[in-house]
């Protein structure tokens, strides 16, 4: 009998190992591809070179797209935190009739295939004859990013002890001060956690961008997709590596600067 927990433990480790391998294997392959000097994936790798990174970083096309993607993602991050945070507060606190229906409504961009959202926005913009301005792209991204912030903020608000706000009020804080001194700092981990999702959703956004980008104003995923049709080489892998590192560093920076550790007991 004493062998049983061991066998269970081994199975447990094996399953976890398999899951981690499954999650990380694509990244490992991308890494090999990015560092391999040949313009195709060869296994085993024939050497290590940074030529694809060089190509990526020296291409004005890629760099422009990377910059645009970053800037759009930052604006989307800010917008979706403000909109998502305020929506969550209104839905959780506002005593709004039908707030459940409204919550579902605000979450609905997640239910819809993003490609439809992209196409619909594209047609709307064309019908309104406003072209495809970058703010239109940002709006599209924000639309699908807000639900993430909404969800994480609602989760924090759900576990929020409102007595803490009452304690602030009774000891002399006006409603505005209660918000800034207590409510905001306490929901901040939720808002920022959602913000990280929003950033990544925007930075990696493809289906919506596909329709909404302007010629010469294409985001990185769109440029990569189109590049792949004509030149499938290691620059794609290098670009993917850079994207992954970018996303990871955003998470790390936000964690360090703002601190995602929740004060709220969840």
């Amino acid at each position: 009998m004493s062998a049983r927990p061991d066998a269970g433990h081994i199975a447990y480790l094996a399953v976890n190992g398999a899951i981690i391998t499954f999650l990380l294997a694509p990244i490992a392959i991308i890494t090999v591809f990015a560092l391999n000097p040949t313009p195709y994936i060869s296994f085993p790798p024939v050497g290590i070179s940074l030529r694809w990174f060089e190509k990526f970083f020296s291409s004005p096309e890629f760099m422009g797209a990377l910059w645009l993607s970053l800037q759009v993602a930052v604006v989307v991050l800010v917008l979706s935190m403000v909109i998502g945070g305020l929506c969550a507060l209104a839905l959780a606190r506002g005593n709004i009739p039908g707030s459940r229906v409204l919550t579902a409504f605000f979450m609905s961009p997640l239910m819809l295939p993003a490609i439809l959202t992209g196409l619909a926005l594209f047609q709307l913009y064309l019908l309104l004859d406003i072209g495809r301005p970058v703010w239109g792209l940002i709006m599209g991204h924000t639309l699908v990013a807000v639900p993430y912030v909404l969800r994480t903020t609602l989760a924090v608000l759900h576990n929020f002890d409102r007595r803490i706000e009452e304690a602030a009020a009774v000891h002399g804080a006006s409603p505005a001060r209660v918000f800034f001194e207590v409510t905001l700092p306490l929901i901040r981990p939720g808002v920022f956690a959602g913000g990280i999702f929003a950033f990544i959703v925007s930075f990696d956004q493809f289906p919506i961008s596909l329709f909404l980008v302007m010629p010469q104003g294409e985001t990185l995923p769109v440029v990569l997709f189109n590049y792949m049709k004509f030149d499938l080489d290691g620059a794609i892998a290098a670009a993917s590596m850079v994207s992954i590192l970018m996303a990871v560093s955003v998470v790390v920076i936000l964690e360090k600067v703002i601190g995602l550790k929740s004060y709220v007991k969840l």
């Binding site: 002890d161 007595r163 304690a167 602030a168 009774v170 001194e181 700092p185 306490l186």
Partner: peptide, 30 residues
């Protein structure tokens, strides 16, 4: 009169301390 102008002290069952502030900051709040 609204809550914040009634000039009262209050202690709650759940303590309702500000979790993001230190003990000294909590006490200094009012």
């Amino acid at each position: 009169v609204p809550v914040h102008k009634r000039d009262m002290g209050m202690v709650f069952q759940s303590y309702a301390l500000f979790p993001h502030r230190t003990v000294a900051e909590n006490v200094a709040f009012g």
